[in-house]
Amino acid sequence: MSKTVIISGGMLDEGFAEKVLEANPEAYIIAVDKGLEYLYNHKIEPQYIVGDFDSIDPKVIDYYRKETNIPIREYNPVKDATDTEIALRLGITLGSKEMILLGATGGRIDHLWANVQTLSVACDAGVNACILDEKNKIWVTNKSCVLKKSEAYGPYLSVFSLEGEIYDFSLEGTKWPLNHHDLMPCDSLTVSNQFVDDEVKISFVNGRIVIMETKD
């Protein structure tokens, strides 16, 4: 199992979710709490169901408990991790090398920020994971990288420090390049840049950064 799609309980454009699942027919599907409702309504079978089930329609989770043999991992709402983090860690344990998180944006900002931080868990495990919606692709890396303009999710590129000061940070191939800058968590300098060259090079020597590829 090389790829996992996690369906979380945030805002989910059903047409967009359908396209992602159709493009990844071999992906393992983990349903997270209210995200299970989308799969139930579209008769899509997940491989795992996780959550405390405090936000899902009770009839939906009852159906899976009584009518299917799909593994369900149920947690007390009073716990030390979000349902999405639990699902992501499960994907890592199952051997996934790539993960797409749907339904991880929209609604409460605290939930969105927790989901962004959770991407660090995948990053540290060497797993490529991203949050995806119609306008945004969000991912975390602890290594310098090269982005291809032809593969960009959108024309805009924003970069943020996820943990303290990022030393010797450089951007090449963007509308506003940056050379050997010490990127601070409070910096807005690297918001809404744009791809110019065929390749954009991002380099730094420590820590983790959040990369957001976006479109209007």
Rank of each mutant, 00 (worst) to 15 (best):
K3L: 09
K3R: 14
V5C: 12
V5R: 11
I7D: 01
I7R: 09
G9M: 10
M11F: 15
L12M: 09
D13L: 07
D13P: 03
D13H: 05
E14T: 14
E14K: 15
E14D: 12
F16G: 12
V20G: 08
V20S: 04
A23F: 04
E26T: 14
A27G: 10
A31N: 02
D33M: 01
K34L: 06
Y38R: 09
L39Y: 05
L39N: 01
N41R: 15
N41S: 13
K43P: 01
K43F: 12
P46F: 11
Y48R: 12
I49V: 12
D52P: 08
D54I: 06
D54K: 08
P58Y: 14
I61Q: 06
Y63E: 07
Y63H: 14
E67P: 08
E67H: 14
T68L: 14
N69I: 04
I70P: 05
P71K: 07
I72Q: 03
V78L: 13
D80L: 10
A81V: 07
T82D: 01
T82E: 04
D83F: 11
E85V: 00
L88W: 12
R89L: 13
G91R: 00
L94W: 02
L94N: 02
G95A: 05
S96W: 01
E98I: 05
E98M: 00
M99Y: 03
I100A: 03
L102R: 03
G107E: 06
L112G: 00
L112Q: 02
N115Q: 07
T118E: 11
T118Y: 09
S120M: 15
V121W: 05
A122P: 14
A125W: 10
A129T: 07
I131P: 02
K135F: 10
K135I: 11
N136C: 00
K137P: 10
I138R: 03
W139R: 11
W139T: 04
V140E: 02
V146Y: 08
L147K: 13
E151N: 11
A152P: 07
Y153P: 03
G154P: 14
Y156N: 09
S161C: 06
E163I: 08
G164W: 05
E165S: 07
Y167W: 01
Y167T: 14
S170D: 09
E172G: 11
G173V: 04
K175D: 15
P177V: 08
P177D: 15
L178C: 12
H180P: 04
H181E: 06
H181V: 13
D182G: 06
L183W: 01
M184E: 13
C186W: 08
L189W: 13
V191Q: 14
S192W: 09
N193H: 10
Q194L: 13
V196H: 00
D197P: 03
D198P: 00
E199C: 03
E199V: 08
V200Q: 03
K201T: 12
S203P: 02
S203N: 08
N206Q: 07
N206H: 10
V210R: 02
V210F: 09
V210W: 12
T214S: 15
K215D: 04
